[in-house]
Design a protein around this nucleic acid. Structure first.
Lengths: 191, 191
DNA sequence: TAATTTGCCTAAAGAGTTTAGGCAAACGCA
DNA sequence: TGCGTTTGCCTAAACTCTTTAGGCAAATTA
């Protein structure tokens, strides 16, 4: 009997492992154990431990992009903003390890070939509901990317729990604030 | 001759190592090599590899808090906001490994005893220049924490380089935007 | 069913982590 | 100054993870 390993299945198992024990504790050895095969066997499916982690990151970015795309369908304006933000946040709650993985620094080339590109395109799509011309649009894309990544990461780390007000309420108000900001984006004082 | 190790010196060396090779590649072994002592010798100064990393994180949080405090002295309003943000960003550029370390998830107890507390107090201090009552102030603190952490982390990862507009300009405009947002914080629609 | 490919295995070396126990340098005190 | 104590770094060893090389048998193909 063979285990029927494929790169795909290995990466998936890695992603599940990440959610269970944390992305930084994902090891090729543990994945092998879960398939009940010897470690060396995995090395025909992933090049290295690094490679496995990068693949998990890419997988998470894909999965997240799909969710965001679904959430965004047919929405615009604040609706779209909230849908995007919530998709992102929900993903992080359901799959903390994968969400961590999605924050992995990728080298430029890999990043360009990743679903990360789709993420910024979708952020741009949201901004069509607001009246922002370039280059302000790009500034806003960067700001939103930063906020989602940073806020969710902070919240996941538990920084907000055990202290009033309710993180749920803060999240809602942060979305209100971002919506307000995008509607009243300040003009460039340098112009 | 003895090497004169102390926890302090070990942690400092770890922080420097983090800046050179990346926080995730900090090992007790490499720190030992730099002091030209055997690995086992370090274990009287730090409990474990994990412990070393946590200590580096706490060290970075302290150091960063000091810088922010200095930057903030005597400023208010947008001036203070920019000073805080720039101190944070400059630290990340000068000490990428330590900045990464400062983003380490700490358990609740450790976090409460860390300089992280001072960080949120300083963020609150900035908000005194804007007219925000509780609980909106806390929402804003959380938002700002998220933005700085997320934006700087994204920029450091190189997401913004190799693409117009200049990251420098984006940063300035993001600060403009945050200032504008804090001056015109939306009222809670639920009230 | 024979030939080929493929997939998982054994074996082994290298590096990091961590603990236990030892010896000598540094210190504290007479 | 010398003696005893403390402290600091060392040796040794076990364990885990990573990674490569080469082998054998199962699955695939003809």
């Amino acid at each position: 009997m063979r285990a029927g390993l494929t790169t795909e299945r290995v990466v998936r198992a890695g992603a599940e492992l990440a959610d269970e024990v944390g992305f930084d504790r994902v090891t090729v050895s543990e994945v092998a154990r879960r398939f009940d095969v010897k470690v060396a066997s995995l090395y025909s499916h992933v090049k290295s431990s690094q490679d496995l982690k990068i693949r998990i990151a890419l997988f998470a970015l894909e999965e997240l992009a799909e969710r965001v795309a679904d959430a965004l369908a047919g929405r615009s304006g604040k609706d779209a903003l909230a849908a995007y933000a919530n998709a992102y946040r929900d993903y992080a709650r359901q799959h903390p390890g994968r969400a961590d993985a999605a924050r992995t620094r990728l080298d430029h080339e890999t990043a360009l070939a990743s679903a990360g590109v789709r993420h910024s395109e979708m952020t741009r799509a949201i901004l069509r509901g607001y009246d922002l011309a370039e280059p302000e649009q790009t500034h806003a894309v960067r700001l939103l990317g930063g906020v989602f990544q940073g806020y969710v990461s902070l919240e996941m780390s538990g920084s907000f729990s055990h202290s009033a007000p309710d993180p749920e309420v803060s999240w809602a108000r942060v979305l209100d604030a971002l919506d307000a900001l995008l509607r009243n984006w300040p003009t460039d004082p340098a112009r």
